[in-house]
Amino acid sequence: MISKETLFALSLFPYLGFLWFISRSQQMPRLALYGFYGTLVFVGVTIPVGIYAKVHYGETLANVDWLHGGAEVFLTLANILLVIGFRQAVKELKGKRQEAGGRRQE
């Protein structure tokens, strides 16, 4: 059986592939792209902080609130960038559709 740590490490490869493809997409909103990269930063921060929690406190990261909360800030920021990026893209698309609709009626 695969350990959760191994599965976690292996899950990074499909995510890196996803980032590679969306980085080349001309349709991905820039802020949303930064949000997806921010998720990778969250993972990069969580790993050493989790090791610190285990070594220093003898607990998993989830059980050391101040460390866990600090690490989760990175995920929260990434999610905010995603939401703002996609919100802007939807607003732009709606604006373009309204412009196109207005031109047809003239």
Rank of each mutant, 00 (worst) to 15 (best):
V64D: 00
V49T: 11
G70T: 14
V43M: 03
I84V: 14
A71Y: 01
P29Y: 01
R103D: 10
G69L: 12
Q105D: 04
V90L: 13
V64L: 05
V49E: 11
F18L: 15
R104H: 04
F86H: 08
I51G: 09
S25Y: 03
G38P: 03
F18H: 13
E106A: 11
G102A: 13
P48G: 10
E106D: 09
S23A: 15
A9G: 02
T76F: 12
Y52W: 15
H68I: 06
G70E: 07
G38N: 04
G95H: 07
E72N: 14
A62P: 00
A89Y: 05
L19H: 08
Y57G: 03
S25P: 06
G44T: 01
I47V: 14
V73Q: 05
K96M: 11
A100P: 01
T6D: 01
V43Y: 02
F13E: 06
V45R: 02
Q26C: 06
N63H: 08
L75W: 12
L81V: 03
L67S: 07
L16H: 10
Y34E: 09
V43E: 04
G38H: 04
L93A: 13
E59M: 11
G50S: 12
Q98H: 06
F86T: 01
Q98T: 04
M28G: 01
Q88M: 00
L67K: 02
N79M: 07
S11Q: 05
L19Q: 03
I51D: 11
N79Q: 14
N63R: 14
E72C: 12
F21L: 15
E99I: 04
R87H: 10
N79K: 00
N63G: 12
K94Y: 05
F13K: 08
S11M: 07
V73D: 06
S11E: 05
N63Y: 11
E72V: 11
R104K: 14
K94T: 11
M1Y: 11
L7V: 06
Q88R: 05
V90S: 01
A89S: 13
W66L: 09
A9P: 04
V49F: 14
G102R: 15
A100E: 13
I84C: 08
G101L: 14
S23G: 14
P29S: 03
F86V: 00
Y57N: 12
G44W: 07
M28I: 13
I47E: 06
V55K: 12
T60K: 08
R87I: 10
E59R: 06
A32V: 01
T76W: 08
I84Y: 02
L31M: 08
A89E: 07
G69M: 09
A78F: 00
G95E: 12
F74E: 05
M28F: 05
P48E: 11
G44M: 13
Y37S: 03
R103A: 12
S11H: 02
P48Q: 11
K4H: 15
L82K: 13
L81H: 05
F86R: 00
A100V: 10
K91R: 08
Y52D: 04
T60P: 02
Y34L: 15
K94C: 02
P14F: 11
P14T: 02
F13N: 01
Y52H: 08
P14N: 12
V55S: 12
I22F: 12
W20H: 14
G38W: 04
L75R: 15
M28T: 15
G101W: 13
K91Y: 15
G102T: 10
Q105C: 05
L81C: 06
F86S: 00
A53V: 08
V64F: 00
G70L: 11
V90Q: 00
